[in-house]
């Protein structure tokens, strides 16, 4: 496994794809696997409460339209980011939840990385646990996917690094003390031990940009959604783990 990533540049062959889970210690894997100790499950529980709570000027709960999430939301998170016909661009799951809040519940959008938005995202994400990632690539989403792909392979920042140089070319090797994972977003939102909190994929992407000393993007920026779309496509067929735990 350690050598496989080093030998060739370019896309990781499907048979060699690994979730970040596979690079974790036994203890951290155990924390994710056991719902009674996985800290992300607290957010899932809170998300379940929010799902059923009426809110906004419309006085409507998510459940009033979508019903039982275990049925209606099954597999949904595995298909995001997804194309929004009104906005004419892909939106991620957090943005989809906020569009629903504004348009259907007539409530103010929830702030990115707020406890409530992470809880709802984790709750919807949990309904896809165990299902394969399955974003839709068609004529509408393809250009955005290509933008995300270009960003993944673009060297940037003062350290002049592309995502691909670590996550395609050097996965399995150690960056300081940490095994470099392949950057498959299988478990978001994740409880990250380094954060001591739950966080979104965009938070993680922003961390990496800081690490290579590159300009950041605002939460919700189209560039970040495009990168999310590419990463989900790159992880197509891999199993959703939400809520994941990561070091």
């Amino acid at each position: 496994m350690v050598l496989a990533g080093a030998t060739f540049a370019g896309e990781i062959p499907r048979a060699e794809r690994r979730s970040g889970y596979d690079f974790m210690s036994r203890e951290t894997r155990a924390m994710q696997d056991d719902d009674t100790v996985n800290p992300g499950m607290l957010a899932v529980l809170e998300g379940g409460t929010l799902w059923a709570r009426k809110t906004g000027a419309a006085g409507r709960a998510c459940a009033d339209c979508h019903g039982d999430a275990s049925a209606g939301m099954k597999g949904v998170a595995a298909r995001y980011p997804a194309f929004d016909a009104a906005l004419k661009r892909p939106v991620n799951l957090e943005q989809r939840i906020n569009l629903c809040r504004v348009d259907r519940q007539r409530a103010p959008p929830l702030a990115y990385e707020s406890r409530e938005l992470l809880a709802l995202t984790a709750y919807v994400g949990r309904q896809s646990r165990g299902l394969p990632i399955d974003v839709v690539v068609d004529a509408r989403t393809q250009p955005f996917l290509e933008n995300g792909r270009a960003a993944f392979y673009r060297r940037q920042g003062q350290l002049n690094l592309a995502c691909s140089q670590c996550h395609d070319d050097n996965w399995g090797r150690r960056l300081a003390g940490n095994a470099i994972p392949q950057a498959h977003p299988t478990g978001y939102p994740v409880y990250r031990l380094e954060w001591q909190s739950l966080g979104s994929l965009q938070r993680r992407l922003r961390n990496c940009l800081v690490g290579i000393r590159a300009e950041g993007y605002e939460y919700g920026a189209p560039e970040l959604v495009e990168l999310e779309l590419f990463l989900m496509w790159r992880a197509r067929g891999m199993t959703m783990e939400t809520p994941g735990v990561r070091p």
Partner: peptide
């Protein structure tokens, strides 16, 4: 993969 430690040109999106 090694960054250029003493070059400032040819870099994109530096913070």
């Amino acid at each position: 993969i090694m960054p250029a430690y003493h070059r400032t040109d040819g870099l994109l999106r530096v913070a």
